[in-house]
Design a protein around this nucleic acid. Structure first.
Lengths: 113, 113
DNA sequence: ACGCCGTGCATCACTATGCGAGGTAGCATC
DNA sequence: GATGCTACCTCGCATAGTGATGCACGGCGT
């Protein structure tokens, strides 16, 4: 991946994770797949960034998680949005919108429109 | 500043710097001011990120720089976009657009429209 | 039978970058 | 003469993405 895009992604993982969990319960690997699908392949969070992010969100109380034995394959850890997670998602969305707007304004050059 | 926004900013400094230099020659401190003005105060690059970024862009050949004695105040280092810098700006703009679009798509949820 | 691949979770070292603090210096104002 | 703004620079710290590696399960091909 481009070294530029790799830096731009920083800070968006929680937003992406929380937003795909809006629809319901998902397990880690599945979360990555959803993000990949929805982004049209633009985002494919590496395991090294996804799992730490999930753990952090759980520790913050934004996600609740439970282990489930799979009928086939290894056990999976299912994540679900908590109320606090919903609020955090809203905050991330707001921050993102404001941020993206500011970038557009600054790059566009039209001093504020 | 919020810890979220601080992460989102990563990777945008070259884009912001290059885009304010599109209008013409500016010196470092002035670049920071322009960014602050144009962004409506949303971005105010710290010196610890701005100067290293300027040096990196210069080393890449995206910017050319010259020292000038100020009639008043200390010497200033003026930066100007090179041809390569113009190309790099275009690339950063393209990457940003594509990135922002992907985020909107993924967060919005409408699987690709 | 065995290796390989995809699923699924996890951690590690490396790297890039923003931030705040500190340093140097000139000049103006109180 | 102390404070404050301009103007440059560098350092240490914290954060977070990446790729590699490890473990484990199960299916597929040869």
């Amino acid at each position: 991946m481009g070294r530029i895009a790799s830096q731009l992604r920083k800070g968006t993982t929680p937003l992406l994770v929380l937003s795909v969990l809006r629809d319901g319960e998902l397990y880690g690997y599945e979360i990555a797949q959803r993000i990949r699908e929805r982004s049209g392949g633009a985002f494919a969070p590496s395991e090294g960034s996804l799992y730490p992010a999930l753990h952090a969100l759980e520790a913050e109380g934004a996600l609740s998680a439970t282990w489930r034995e799979g009928d086939k394959g290894p056990r999976r850890r299912y994540y679900r949005l908590t109320n606090a997670g919903g609020a955090l998602l809203a905050e991330h969305e707001a921050q993102w919108s404001s941020f993206a707007l500011s970038v557009a304004r600054t790059v566009g050059g039209e001093a504020g429109r």
